[in-house]
């Protein structure tokens, strides 16, 4: 009797929990190429997304865990990657022992826009743009959330008092974000002729960032399917052997 009451209570509780967790901004639901057990990265979208990162995001946001060579994973050739890396200079020590600069190599990490946190804060009114290397893993809601922030700008509702230099964003917790709206329609010109709407740009850059956060995702799922099939088969035959072994007991 008592157990039943408690369980009923628990059931109500479980049903109520998600409702409580979801009060800040509703997550948009985007059909990502990379979701699901067989999902892969849409290479073209990721390449367009890299263009957006390069032309827009990288002015403030670092990508410091990633390497230029990682770009081969979204379908760029080794020569293209080398050219992209070479267009950036990175600090080094010259033969005379003094600080110098050299063109980056594919084996280099992405160059950060600021040399350190203090420099970033000094340049950006005290705000620190987060590193984007694992951004889709580091936010509740993942890719959908990042997409939601990028497309969630707008006018604050009447009566809402905005902090100085803050921008209204319906997805961001607290709805006040220091980053001004980064993407506008036609912010970039896509080489493949895709129309650069805001949704398209957000979709593409999130695809790229999801790849950067999980560069081995395709391999992981590919191996995973085989492992699950193998284990299912092994479970089946092991159970059959078990039945045989136990047949003289039951």
């Amino acid at each position: 009797m008592r157990a039943a009451t408690t369980l009923a209570l628990l059931g109500t509780l479980l049903a109520a929990a998600p409702a409580l967790a979801q009060e800040e901004g509703k997550l948009p639901h985007v059909n990502w190429s990379f979701s699901g057990p067989f999902g892969t990265y849409d290479r073209a979208a990721a390449q367009r997304g890299f263009q957006i990162y390069k032309e827009v995001c990288s002015n403030c946001h670092s990508l410091k865990e990633a390497y230029y060579r990682d770009l081969e994973g979204i379908g760029l050739s080794a020569a293209q990657v080398k050219a992209i890396a070479a267009s950036v200079t990175v600090p080094t020590i010259g033969d005379d022992g003094q600080p110098a600069e050299r063109p980056a190599l594919p084996s280099d990490h992405f160059k950060s826009p600021f040399p350190n946190e203090k420099a970033a804060r000094a340049a950006l009114n005290g705000a620190l743009p987060p590193d984007l290397s694992v951004i889709t893993l580091a936010r509740e809601g993942g890719a959908d959330y990042v997409y939601g922030v990028l497309t969630g700008y707008g006018e604050p509702p009447a009566g809402m008092k905005m902090g100085e230099g803050m921008n209204y964003n319906k997805m961001f917790p607290g709805h006040q974000i220091a980053m001004p709206q980064p993407l506008q329609p036609d912010q970039v010109t896509y080489a493949d002729g895709t129309k650069a709407t805001l949704d398209q740009e957000a979709h593409d850059v999130v695809t790229f960032l999801e790849y950067v956060a999980n560069p081995h995702m395709e391999e992981r799922k590919r191996i995973g399917v085989k492992v699950i099939l193998f284990l299912a088969m092994l479970t089946g035959i092991t159970y059959a052997v078990k039945r045989k072994v136990w047949s003289d007991v039951h």
Binding site: L231, L234, T235, T238, Y239, K242
Partner: peptide, 12 residues
């Protein structure tokens, strides 16, 4: 053998 069955499911 009975533990092996459980182990397979656990690994799954």
């Amino acid at each position: 053998i009975k533990d092996s069955v459980g182990l397979c499911v656990f690994f799954l």
